[in-house]
Design a binder for these strands. Structure first.
Lengths: 227, 227
DNA sequence: CACACAATTTGACCATGTTCAAGAATAACG
DNA sequence: CGTTATTCTTGAACATGGTCAAATTGTGTG
């Protein structure tokens, strides 16, 4: 057995092959209409082989969701290395996911399927996806890391931007405009607005508002207490 | 056959009976673990009888969602008749759904199951639920109708408040605090904040911001153009 | 009542996600 | 090389959501 990190043992290859076949079929025919038998057929293995590598059909989507996150990290890392401009960095982070899922809209919808079921492993707000969520917010934190920000904003903004991204992602799925242009424009506009609010939030007049909002979110356990 | 609106023909009774049994089982055991056979057994009919009245298991949830909306309308109508105080009216509208679903949290999660799939009949943002959505926003419009509001805000606010309610409803499902107290407090706090922003939005200083936000949402087709 | 027609109810059947015990291939080790 | 443990692969079987044509019940009409 390899001790180094060559990622392609025999099994890894089969798994990856099944994964690719599944995504192809999902993209062409949608998630529900694609049967596990279809996937097995295309991958030229037995149905149970698919279950050996993925505990369920939805687990394939979870794997897709993870790979999506990794791809986003690559894209962002490239941009972060290239520019120090805050707006560009944030914009790249925000829309990178749109570009990645452009042709996977049928697929991606399934990621939201268990939003309302806290204990489900694929709940996009639950424990099973906590790690993905963390990595996604870290990207926003990195986009912001060159700025001097008050501590509370520094804590709040990545989460807020992640929420914005998730919301826009849902809208992206419903957007019938060419290339989802409408959602992309809204993303750009929301970002402008956020940046404007960021500077505005520092004004003394708005200090009480800002404090109020933050304490509200803290009480709701949406952001952790400062230590 | 009755021409008047007595709602209980033989069939209506069976349907209603199946519906009640299904909800009982869903509440006790959850949606997925409850089988159509279980429902039929408890209702003392054949499985196919259940399918005669509901085209699918999920259709039962859709019926639940509709009945929920009707119940909310009753609750709100009572409050609206009783008080002209804006905050009270809005607060009642906002939290009435929490009270109604307090013991149906397992159930309600399924309503969000197709959020990411625009064409699914049970998508809570899709066509199949458009009527429910309309009725829900109308309630907020009614809560506001005693106020003198600029036209654009009058158009925007019901939708914004509905979104807030949907978001809080999801949080409600994840909230493990006793009686979902945390979410209720966040609801109250958000409402305070919204009211504060409503008055703030009228200040001349913020006019451009307000215009910007509105035009952004119009371009995104989230609110209709003014006619 | 007798008949036609609509509403309801049923059991048998199908498709598909998932499980499982057992067999084949591969790696580990003396 | 031979033996053993591990990884992989398989076909058969199961559970459940959903379909359907036929049977049964009800309901109005001559």
């Amino acid at each position: 057995m390899f001790k180094n990190n060559v990622p392609t043992t025999k099994g890894e290859q089969t798994r990856s092959h099944i994964f690719d076949c599944a995504l192809d079929l999902f993209r062409d025919n949608g998630f529900d209409p694609t049967t596990m038998q279809d996937i097995a057929n295309r991958a030229e293995v037995a149905k149970s082989a698919a279950y050996y590598y993925f505990p369920s059909k939805e687990a394939i989507i979870q794997a897709y969701y993870e790979s999506l996150q990794s791809q986003q990290e690559s894209l962002c890392a490239a941009v972060f290395a290239e520019t120090k401009d805050l707006k560009k960095r944030l914009h790249a982070t925000l829309i990178s996911k749109f570009d990645l899922v452009q042709h996977d809209r049928k697929l991606l919808g399934v990621v939201f399927r268990y939003t309302g079921e806290p204990t489900h492993p694929l709940s996009c707000l639950g424990k099973g996806t906590a790690e993905i969520r963390r990595r996604a917010t870290v990207l926003f934190a990195q986009a912001l890391e060159l700025e001097r920000l008050p501590q509370d904003l520094q804590q709040l903004l990545p989460l807020a931007l992640w929420s914005l991204q998730m919301g826009l992602l849902v809208m992206f799925l419903y957007d019938s405009s060419l290339g989802q242009k409408r959602t992309r424009q809204l993303a750009a506009g929301s970002l402008d607005f956020t940046l404007k609010m960021m500077t505005l939030a520092r004004l003394p007049v708005l200090k009480p508002v800002r404090t109020k909002v933050l304490s509200l979110l803290r009480e709701a356990d949406l952001i952790p207490e400062l230590n």
